[in-house]
Design a protein around this nucleic acid. Sequence first.
DNA 1: GGATAATAGACATGCCGACC
DNA 2: GGTCGGCATGTCTATTATCC
Length: 289
Amino acid sequence: MRLWNKNQEKLFFDKSKNFATYEQLFYRTDDGRYVSYWPKGYSGAKSTLQARNSLIGNYTEKWVCDLLNFMLDDEELFVIQQAQIPAIGITHRSPADIVISKANKKVLMPDEVKLIFEVKMSLVWNWQYDETTGHVREIGDYRTHQGRPSFTRSDSILKAIGKCIDIRVSNVRASKIPLIVLGNAPLSNGFCKKADYLKTSGIIQGFWSLNPFPLNHGNTRKRSHKNGFIRMDNVDELNMTLNQLFKQELNFFSGMESPQRLGQLIEIANREKTYQEKGLKFLNLLKGS
DNA sequence: GGATAATAGACATGCCGACC
DNA sequence: GGTCGGCATGTCTATTATCC
């Protein structure tokens, strides 16, 4: 099993042509070519495809599910697509894209959830459909066309951040659940710092790109300073990073408190015996204050 | 130092499925 | 049948980076 590459996108077209027309999958240029994105510099009449959006959303989400199912060797864990966790505000109205869960069902309790993935993936390369042969071939990476992969778009990233914060502030019971945003392109420059801060402050545990080689020529960013963004280069690396996250038993906490008040809480918590107990006591005091 | 290219960020679009 | 939120993609403009 491989991470995201050109072949996954080719497969997307192969599968989609069963229930979508070529007019729904490709733009038609002035000179009669079928392309998946408007090439850079193209100045003819343009439109914006809409029918393709949900197809891509479903396909990428399903692809991630298959990847995780292949990867996870723990019999006790399940990959749930479109999961609901009503207790923390994730209802049928806007379910979580993908959840790794200890229970094999769509509606989950917070304690059953090991991790939540928000998937933000799109077509990265440009493709041309040849009417005569029926073949689809790659004609350039995202630097050669006008469409921008979602990880390079500020508004897409802001939306992902918003959704994660929405979960964080929904209920204390969400505080143990790590949140990961998955994409297939490098994170834009401006957001690397923010991704790092989101990670160190505990709101989002990472932005991971599952596309090792998004460009045909040239290198891309491997990671941000504090690993808020990471480009996964193979399935092993993804698996390892995921397992590390599971082992840590993280707790999200936040607040606005005076140094005095914090000092008091620390003193009380310090009466506990072990570091583990001291930590948990402190978190409880923080929540109660 | 000025011209040009690249990027960030705000805003707009139209399709879909869920729900009332 | 109408509304609403989610989706990926496009346009536009101000700002920043790069080149000569």
